[in-house]
Nucleic acid binder design. Sequence first.
DNA 1: TCAATAACCGAAAAAAGATTCGGTATTGAA
DNA 2: TTCAATACCGAATCTTTTTTCGGTTATTGA
Lengths: 119, 119
Amino acid sequence: MYVRKIEEDLDCGIRVALKIFGGKWKLCIIEAINRGITRPVEIHKSISNSSLRVIEIQLAELLFFGVIDKCSEDVYPKKSEYELTPFGKSLLPIVSQIDKWGMEHSDRVKEKLLSIHQE
Amino acid sequence: MYVRKIEEDLDCGIRVALKIFGGKWKLCIIEAINRGITRPVEIHKSISNSSLRVIEIQLAELLFFGVIDKCSEDVYPKKSEYELTPFGKSLLPIVSQIDKWGMEHSDRVKEKLLSIHQE
DNA sequence: TCAATAACCGAAAAAAGATTCGGTATTGAA
DNA sequence: TTCAATACCGAATCTTTTTTCGGTTATTGA
């Protein structure tokens, strides 16, 4: 895992939280797993524009912090599936609140972004 | 303002939301303004390890998206102060929820991070 | 047995984002 | 009127994150 050069201050709840789910796709991954999309390739397909590699990397990080668990049946990893741990599930209210807020305000944001590109 | 090379998919609420408050310090800035810390230098001082420049840049972005307003008294900008717009205030429940979650789990996160550095 | 699919991983490159630095302009107090 | 503080900004640089690419291994079904 990448180790930062610049130390982080984790005395602020916001920064602790962002350390866990601040990655580009982490919240989307958590949401996908919650919707029953549990395998890396499926998650990747469900998130448009995401590269498979970064999904793998972020799954590994979520695994590291105990947000998700890997639950492969049998001995060898034939099909790997991920599930939310209780810790991961404690994030669901935040995920749904953020998603709801974003949906409610997407028009405003798109409009603003359009205005930049039109200049 | 910086314009991305790679287009973003804004059909997902989460990504819309992160477009608005996904910057490194944006949630901290919103929280600071809500606590009555309204001037750039003060905000910068209240957030350890932040560079003043990035606070300025992120204030400008929050301003652009209508999350905050600049409310300088009189004509010339003698003292610039920022306040949350109604749109910005609609983020406060999310900010406080994230902060609360982070505080509750900071020990776990610190412990995990420590284990990386000890290898 | 052979091709396709999945699950990884390392490394280089590119992109995004943050920091540092040096600058201007304004203000307010000494 | 001089000086320190504030509010900015542009540009270079550096760090972090994401992407791309090329692999290995295992599984599954034709």
